[in-house]
Structure formats: C-alpha cells, structure tokens
C-alpha cells in the first residue's frame, strides 16, 4: 500500500479489500463494552480541517481515539491559519510537533499532495476541493458490501448528481472500478466533467433509464448556488429530472439500495420519503465511516516507510 492515502486510484484491489476486511474486524469493536484498542497508543493523529465538516472530522476523531491515538484537532478557524499562515508553514509546525498522521480536509484540490512534500507524517486525504475523498468511497464500498451481502464484482452502481464538482464521485468511480463494479454516472451534461472517455464509467442523462437494473443508487448533493451559475434552470426542474422520489424508487429492483454521502438536501436530489425508507443506508454510512477510518489509520500507521506491512 502507498504510504499515504491521497486518491482512491492509488489503491490496488488487494489494498482495497484489505482495508474493507480490516474494517469489518474494527466494526466489532463498536459493539463491545470497551470500545477501545491500544493499537496506536503513543501515536499522534492531527485533524487538519480547512473546511468545516463536523461529520468527517468527528468520524476520524472517533476512529483515532478508538485506536488510542492522541488526537489534535487543528481547525483553520481561530488558529494561525486564519491569520494567514501558509499551508507549508503549518506543515512544518506539525512536523516539528511530531505528528504521525495528518488527516487533511482542504478546499484546494491537491492540498494533501502538497502536504506530503513538507512533512514526514502519513497523510490521509479527508476531501480536497473537487478532487477526491477516498475514505468516503471506502465507507460507501463497505456499506454496499454489507447490504448486498457479497463482493462488488459485477454490481451495478448509479451515481447521480453534480459529478463535475464531486470529490465523492471521483473517488467512488475509481474504487468501484477497482472492486469490479459497473458504474453509471447520471447528470445533466452541464454537471459532467469534460473529456471523460478514460473514466471507467458509463454516462447517462436519463435517470429513469438508468435505474432499471441497479444494485445501488448513490445520490449526490447539488448545491443551490449551481443554479445561479446556470448549471440548471431551477431547483424544481433539477429535482424533476434528477431527484430520487418515490416513483423512481419503485423503478429500482426491490433489493437495490439508496446511498447519500450527506449532507442531504431533502426535496432537491432526494425526497424525504426515500431518505427515510428502509432502502436508504445513510445512517449506516456514517457508522461505517468510523470502522473504515480505523482500518485506514491502523494499516497506514503500522506499515514502515516503504509502504510494507507484513500482512
């Protein structure tokens, strides 16, 4: 496995399966009375969050604490960062403090890559701009495996919404392909990236047509400000053409599940009745996030600097 987790594309099939299998063992810790393992005692994990994301930051924090790591939350607000300190200087500070791992969330695509050039610690990308969010893809795959009760070879997954600006979509397309699933991206042409021929995914503009044989339908948040930038005419029209409502849920096979990385905009990309249905996995996704992040921290922090574990 690579020393850092920057992109879901860096994971081989073997790496990805190891993370998912390890996460399954980690999940059992959450069911125990003592929800803590001594594994990372004495190691320091820094949560470096330049964007507000209580959900992701808390998930990493719980994961690190369950493994007994010391956790430092270094949020951009109210710190030297908000006083104009550069990412490089922050990195040098964390390096001097002896951080073993830095979990970074940043609005700039590629910020985690830059960070690896300035410090020795293991760097985990917790979402960078419109680039990637690999641990989200891992927890999504974990949730799919759990719900479908099998590996993802041949599974059909539709990812619907603002693909252009979605780091979740970029990571999921790569990881799901690595795991053998077939991905269809569904969006209006304005919200699809240019020159996607090399993406291992099919593209469709028609949600109804895509739903007939899916195992998983993953809805992405669409920010209302996209409307003012003319990516689509109105929220109403977007919702009508690309929102998942009860009628569309009925078009899906009976066992197919509905996923959403959150935060949801009910009534926009997903109807309330769908979000609350038993087919939706939104709460499980949050719970699984902790297990997957425990697995990632454990595997990255217990391999030597050449990326070799003994497992």
């Amino acid at each position: 496995m690579n020393r850092h987790l920057l992109s879901a594309g860096d994971l081989s099939r073997e790496d990805a399966l190891k993370i998912l299998d390890t996460a399954e063992q980690m999940a059992t810790v959450g069911d125990r009375e003592v929800k803590k393992l001594p594994t990372l005692r004495g190691r320091t994990v820094v949560n470096l969050f330049y964007e507000d994301s209580t959900r992701t930051r808390t998930s990493f924090e719980v994961a690190a604490k369950r493994l007994s790591a010391d956790v430092i939350n270094f949020s951009a607000k109210g710190s030297s960062v908000s006083k104009g300190e550069s990412l490089k200087d922050t990195a040098l500070t964390l390096h001097a403090m002896g951080a073993d791992a830095v979990v970074i969330r940043h609005a700039a695509s590629g910020a985690p890559h830059r960070l690896t050039q300035w410090l020795d610690a293991v760097v985990v990308n917790a979402g960078d701009g419109t680039h990637e969010h690999p641990t989200q893809a891992l927890l999504d795959a974990f949730t799919m495996r759990q719900r479908l009760g099998r590996d993802l070879d041949g599974a059909k997954v539709a990812i619907v919404g603002d693909i252009l600006h979605s780091r979740v979509a970029r990571s999921n397309v790569q990881l799901l392909h690595t795991l053998g699933a077939h991905v269809t991206l569904v969006a209006p042409p304005t919200l699809l990236p240019r020159d996607m021929q090399t993406w291992p995914a099919q593209v469709s503009y028609d949600l109804d047509a895509a739903l007939g044989d899916v195992d998983v339908c993953m809805m992405l948040r669409v920010q209302a400000e996209r409307m003012t930038a003319s990516y689509f005419p109105t929220v109403r029209e977007y919702s009508r053409r690309y929102g998942l409502d009860g009628r569309r849920l009925a078009l899906m096979p009976k066992e197919a599940i509905v996923m959403h990385p959150g935060p949801m905009v009910r009534g926009m990309e997903i109807a309330g009745e769908v979000a609350d249905s038993s087919r939706a996995t939104i709460v499980e996704q949050v719970r699984n996030g902790v297990s997957v992040r425990m697995a990632v921290l454990y595997l990255l922090l217990t391999q030597d600097s050449t990326g070799q574990g003994t497992a």
Binding site: L37, T39, Y298, T302, G309, T310, A311
Partner: peptide, 14 residues
C-alpha cells in the same frame, strides 16, 4: 491490535 511490536513488524491482516 494489542501487540506492542506493531511499529517494528507492521500491520498484519486481522
């Protein structure tokens, strides 16, 4: 996950 030599030996499959 309880070993005291993980840093020397590296991660093993659980």
């Amino acid at each position: 996950l309880y070993r005291d030599d993980l840093r020397m030996r590296g991660a093993r499959a659980l």
